[in-house]
Amino acid sequence: MESDSRPEASTAAELRERAAVINRSTLAPHTDGSGVSWWAVVAASALNTVLAWLLFLIVRDEVLWLLWVLLLVPLAAPLGWSFASRLVRRRYGVAPVQNNQPRELQRFQTRAVILSAPLELGILALVIFAPIWVALPATFVASSVVFGLIWRAYERTARRIGASAG
């Protein structure tokens, strides 16, 4: 009797182990990797600012620059995001936007990057005709605020998905 029950207990343990493996592999990355620090947001914003002002130095014309920014910002937002996620991956070992990201978060990120363009452009347009010594830090702050808001929303979404999956 005892010898009959051993294989069954061992199989049950094996199946429970499989269930635990699935839970760990499904939940861990987007719950432990989404605690992104502000320095990553600042780094992404700094990259955006440098790109924007390099263009200004090349163009030297506010109206033309605005047209360039119209092209740049949609490019700079995902570039900045990608840059920040690489920094995060080096620090935390998890890149929230590159690997093991639930599909809901992927859709959220796409929407966030697309939304960040008009938001950032709107703020940049307010300071575009100001002197450079005002516009330069204003661009940086605007970029930081936009990225910061997006990232906080990303973290909330990641936690919500993690909680509902758990």
């Binding site: 690997n99 093991n100 990201q101 599909r103």
Partner: peptide
């Protein structure tokens, strides 16, 4: 499990 919850 990781791949099923990922794009790549």
């Amino acid at each position: 499990s990781i791949l099923a919850n990922s794009h790549s």
